[in-house]
Nucleic acid binder design. Structure first.
Lengths: 229, 229
DNA sequence: GGTTTGCAAGAGCACCGCTCACATTTGTCA
DNA sequence: TGACAAATGTGAGCGGTGCTCTTGCAAACC
């Protein structure tokens, strides 16, 4: 249902939704998830506090919207990062550096998606597809990382406990034809990158590795050197 | 000033301090940093809310105390983990697994120290020494990771931008005689481990790698395989 | 035994998320 | 065009928060 006919009301609503998200994001820049104040947003919006609840049923709903947006935006950046990469390895480097650039440009958004869990917030299922896009964007640097998997996988009851089974199942869930070795490499590389950014943004490098540009680049290259391209 | 003579008043105070921290930790277990409520603590302590401020000047002060304790506790665990390790490599594995065990046993404490930054909270300098203990415990698995560094380092103005200089400076700051290659390996390994735990505790493995025991073990071993022991 | 000192009480301030009954605006359709 | 319904904004209010401040009391010390 494309329904391109937007009534002015729908248009205004979308506009307001975006303004709320923008204000929330701005507020999040120098506060943090738990501190997000709907009242403050309403104040800046020059509207009574309860009015905001017409747009987001709760603070958690707003957070979810921000998280989905953040995943989407990050995925966009990663997908675009390797546009001019000459080979797979260069694509990996480009994407890893793009991830850091994105995280540093908006540390609060990085924290939102890869930071520690938020108060009583439980991420709804709406967020798993956008989260998958990020992983897929990274998987694209690997052979088979873009080809759709032939067999849709029978989806057994529960996750297998052995690593091989888990790797196979995850590749199937992502819908790509990735070898298990490659997927394991990807998970390790992703963990390393997320960890390095967590430490950098958390200020754990202060006094030692600041700026961390060279350190990060070295870690990314070392990761790349671990496989055959 | 050892001052072993504790007046009953000091004793009672320490007792209360500990009780507050315990309650805070318990509360943090199923809430999260920003949600820490001094009022709730006072309620459980059966005391009026303002009384708590006699012990911790602010919520941030309490958080700082918890962070320092967490670093200390983690460092204790890591130091003890490799007691029966036969060689360096086994020590690394043992400590990496101990880190995960600690994090899974108390995810809120892990989030406290390695999670995303807390609201307006700025970690005071009190926390950097305990944080260093953790790194030192891990560095101990490397040759020279325990030997005190001969030269105290001149401590130049500002951190150098090139990686080699940063590595040398950091080793000096930690006060250990670690080669630059080894330190770089350590940082990478630490980043990977922190990242893997961040993802696991953040629920990013749900549906794919759950339980993540084998995955984590594989990542740790792969990391170990990257250097000569 | 008197004085100092530490601690708890309780009221109060300004904020928060969220609800609800009510008023107003706005798009749609007879 | 006018009536009606849906969407939106209002404002009071509930129970919670961190934190401050003055006041009284009891324990520790000389």
């Amino acid at each position: 249902m494309p329904e391109s006919r937007r009534t002015p009301r729908q248009l205004a609503r979308e506009e307001t939704l975006q303004r709320i998200k923008d204000l929330a994001l701005a507020q999040l820049a120098d506060a943090s998830a738990g501190e997000l104040s709907l009242r403050a947003i309403a104040r800046e919006l020059d509207v009574v506090s309860s009015a905001v609840y017409r747009y987001f049923a709760s603070r958690d709903d707003l957070l979810t919207a921000l998280i989905v947006d953040a995943y989407g935006d990050l995925a966009d950046h990663l997908e675009a990062a390797a546009d001019h990469a000459s080979d797979r390895r260069a694509a990996w480097t480009a994407k890893a550096l793009a991830l850091r650039a994105w995280a540093r440009a908006a540390p609060h958004r990085f924290a939102l998606v890869y930071g520690s869990t938020i108060p009583g917030y439980r991420a709804p299922e709406t967020t798993i597809a956008p989260a998958g896009r990020v992983v897929l964007a990274l998987a694209a640097v690997l052979p088979g990382g873009t080809e759709p998997r032939p067999d849709p996988a029978p989806s057994p009851d529960g996750t297998p406990a052995d690593l091989t089974g888990q790797l196979a199942l995850t590749a199937a869930a992502l819908g790509i034809a990735l070898s298990e070795d490659d997927l394991l490499w990807l998970v390790g590389a992703f963990a390393r990158v997320v960890g390095a950014l967590t430490l950098e943004l958390g200020g754990h490098f202060v006094g030692g590795f600041e700026p961390a540009d060279e350190l990060y680049a070295a870690l990314v290259e070392e990761e790349a050197a671990r496989r055959e391209w």
